[in-house]
């Protein structure tokens, strides 16, 4: 998979999005610290963190026996570009809607 696909795949899961949100508030954190914020097991958290790391959305640093995870938001730039393009299409459509409703045409 290309990097953007890995990013989308990572974002497609609600738990992973929640993990990113938690890490955005407080980073770095260990898996053990993160477990308290979630209802899934530590092993489950580690699996999700691994998917996020492969997409480049979190960075992993070893710290003693545990690893510390930090948010790395740079890969989201590609996603932003993509959403921007969709917004552009919608803006064009809404501009045409505005022209229509502000015209004299009977609706």
């Amino acid at each position: 998979m290309e990097r953007t696909d890995l990013v989308f795949n990572a974002l497609a899961d609600a738990t992973r999005r929640e993990l990113l949100t938690v890490l955005a508030r407080t980073s770095p954190r260990t898996a053990t610290q993160l477990v308290g914020d979630f209802t899934i097991t530590r092993q489950g958290i580690l699996k999700h963190l691994d998917v996020l790391a492969q997409a480049g959305l979190v960075e992993v640093q070893p710290k003693g026996r545990e690893r510390r995870y930090s948010l790395s938001p740079r890969p989201l730039d590609g996603v932003n570009d993509w959403i921007e393009a969709i917004n552009a299409t919608w803006r064009e459509r809404l501009t045409r809607l505005k022209d229509l409703v502000e015209s004299d045409e009977p609706l």
Partner: peptide
């Protein structure tokens, strides 16, 4: 490819 405003709701803010 034209750019406009970016919206990634909630997540964007935190990120």
């Amino acid at each position: 490819s034209e750019g406009w405003s970016i919206q990634i709701h909630n997540l964007d803010k935190y990120l």
